[in-house]
């Protein structure tokens, strides 16, 4: 499943992703919060493979199609059931329509293109996990090298 993934060890908490997302969609669909003065954490739609938002939608505006979720704004009546059905609270209502991250409709997502620290990536989960692990190992080996010298 192609999605937006976050490497929390890289996020600076600069909120550039929020600005970029807001510029494209009017209102940002990604939000960054700082936890206990230490960890900055961006959060956006998880693109669930069994999406509760789509299960409860009365007008089939949110539809599960294969592994992804498709949104038909003209069918949305703004009832707000999807935002109450999201386990992570990541659907919003804006101007009478449901709003959630659709990774800029499969084009290169604006938040990923903007992120200055490379904390956000768009692609397959396995590729992202592999890259994050490689970086973690390189970081650890650099630290060990430093101790040896």
């Amino acid at each position: 499943m192609r999605s937006i993934y976050v490497d929390l060890t890289r996020c600076l908490g600069c909120r550039a992703c929020e600005v970029a997302c807001g510029r494209i969609h009017g209102k940002s669909r990604i939000s960054v919060a700082i936890l206990r003065d230490r960890i900055s954490m961006p959060l956006a739609c998880r693109q669930c493979q069994r999406a509760t938002c789509a299960m409860v939608c009365p007008t089939e505006a949110l539809v599960q199609e294969g592994e992804g979720i498709t949104f038909f704004p003209e069918r949305c009546n703004g009832c707000g059931l999807c935002l109450l059905a999201c386990p992570f609270g990541l659907v919003n209502l804006w101007a009478g329509k449901a709003e959630r991250c659709d990774h800029c409709m499969e084009k290169s997502p604006a938040c990923v293109a903007t992120c200055p620290s490379g904390a956000l990536a768009f692609g397959e989960e396995m590729a992202f996990a592999k890259a994050a692990r490689t970086r973690a190992v390189l970081r650890a080996s650099r630290a060990i090298e430093g101790v040896r010298r």
């Binding site: 936890l35 206990r36 954490m41 999201c86 609270g89």
Partner: peptide
């Protein structure tokens, strides 16, 4: 509520 769900999800990730 959705707001608390976001906070809880962040806690789980942290």
């Amino acid at each position: 509520c959705p707001r608390c769900r976001r906070a809880l999800e962040r806690e789980r990730m942290a």
